[in-house]
Amino acid sequence: MIWQLDLILLLLVLITGIAALSVKDLLSSAIILGAYSFLMCLLWTEMGAVDVAFTEATVGAGVSTVFFVAAIYHTTRRTKD
């Protein structure tokens, strides 16, 4: 546990989490959520939970981002109202 690294990672996780919620464009939101997942993976590795970090890197940052993009592909870019 290096507290400086912990602090930086936690701040980045907070920033990406808030950004993913507040961004209007769905595609940007999905990509920022992928970055959030990757930062969570780094945080878990740093805390020693390598198995959880591996799952997060494969499922969270890898496959679920692709699923989000594939689902967003069926929507329109601008809202109707």
Partner: peptide, 14 residues
Amino acid sequence: SPGGGFQGGVLVAA
């Protein structure tokens, strides 16, 4: 080591 069936399966799917 870390890893196993679930992570390997996700990699095959990827």
